[in-house]
Design a protein around this nucleic acid. Sequence first.
DNA 1: CGTCATTGTCCCTTACAAGAGACGCCTGTA
DNA 2: TACAGGCGTCTCTTGTAAGGGACAATGACG
Lengths: 267, 267
Amino acid sequence: MQDGNALAARPDAGLDEDKNSGSREKGLNRVLQILEFLHTTQRAIGIGDLARGVNAPRSTTYTLVRSLVDAGLLEMAGDGNRVYFGKKLYLYGMDYVRGNDLLRRGRQEVDHLSRETGETSELCMLQSGRYTIVHSSPGTRPFRISSATGLQIPLPWTASGRLLLAGFDRAAIEDMVSEDDLVLPDGRRLQLDDFIDDIAVAKSAGYCVTSGLVDAYTKCLAAPVFSAPGRVEATMCLVVPIDTSTEKTDDLIELLRERAARLSIAA
Amino acid sequence: MQDGNALAARPDAGLDEDKNSGSREKGLNRVLQILEFLHTTQRAIGIGDLARGVNAPRSTTYTLVRSLVDAGLLEMAGDGNRVYFGKKLYLYGMDYVRGNDLLRRGRQEVDHLSRETGETSELCMLQSGRYTIVHSSPGTRPFRISSATGLQIPLPWTASGRLLLAGFDRAAIEDMVSEDDLVLPDGRRLQLDDFIDDIAVAKSAGYCVTSGLVDAYTKCLAAPVFSAPGRVEATMCLVVPIDTSTEKTDDLIELLRERAARLSIAA
DNA sequence: CGTCATTGTCCCTTACAAGAGACGCCTGTA
DNA sequence: TACAGGCGTCTCTTGTAAGGGACAATGACG
């Protein structure tokens, strides 16, 4: 994973001022940082490296990791001195799925849609103010568009982001979008006003299409999933080659909107 | 955490360091208890009830829940003052699956097996000294055998339990199996020695069948999945009607062992 | 209308966990 | 052989978070 492209190291814009002055940290916060760190690395990691990664004292890290391993939230990886997520987290995650109609049905719908169209399909949500790919199904194209579940991407880079922010006022949007988020991967810079305009357009249109934002070869089609009238809870989206014909794109959008609407019903 | 399921099985067995004398608890431990509690309730719960459920002061519980909600590990449920697992836990759980070949392939194998045979199929593992159904696929019978993912059952009640303990010595087994665990749902009581004998038999046979242990209508066929020679990492099992013919049972065991062995290879 | 139970917030105290650092143990390499 | 670097454990101190408890605001009774 390219840590370079702003996904991993995020100073968290503003208020979460990084007291690196070594102020004593609450154990729980350290744990949350550890989990988040493992989520970004996506692999087992040594405890020493972990301590360095979350900028915590070694002794503290050992203590916390032991607690977490005992609890089953983390597991020691095969070779013995590395840790990664544990079975407990998987079980809790399954509990979440079970308790969440939208996610459960959304996953099925996404899988179905990608099999049906052959394109990469995703279910996206806001996750504590950030755009998150909650589930994705790869499609059948020879080149696979990279989009791991759980990946977090700046909202302005995506079509879904424009839909997910439909319900929020300007202040809330400014709050969620950092300056860095407005800079696209290719270096271009979006204007916040333009982005907010996009959101309004997407809201009234009931779908959104972006071309060549995250990369130059794809466009992204997205449709909103409502949890209540006007409240966008999630989006379904399709990632297709940027040269897809207008007619085919329109067909796909139509299909996508229909499926997204179907998800909206009982939520 | 030994007292993890205290509320499910034994409302107040008392023996587990239940220092209700008001000893100050570490925040992290409280959090672990909260998560475990939500796992057993399987539903959103009010913060007051939660505090009562984990026997924690209200003020502390509010503080912790707020942290967890901010972090996305928990979410406020729809109506507003209830909490349940959050998206973050789902994402971490998916990370676990991704980083765990055995689980990923095991899930597929189980789904496939149950479609193929029409019987309920499960993947089981030891989870911090407890038997856990990690994944299950319902099968096509009219009466559905209840076996939720994440369910924890006393080891002696199951065929898989006998296989999972194959690698452990007597002391370790005694440590994992409480007195209560030896009492079957119908009230019968197993002798620990008999259980340990069962384990030895299962180990050398390479499979295990139990009839009418958890309930009177089913038998359970299980085969071991090895992560290293001799080390049982998981089991696959089939739950079939107790009156299934011997020949069919034998066929199923054969199939099961083959599939379990296939899982073992690369792990 | 009172009464009782619950919910969410706040403040103050002190028990205790986070952290610094030293220690012994490995393994690699110069 | 000596050194450097990482790992895992342990001890001791002190800053701080857990907890007790009071408070206002709700809502459910009768």
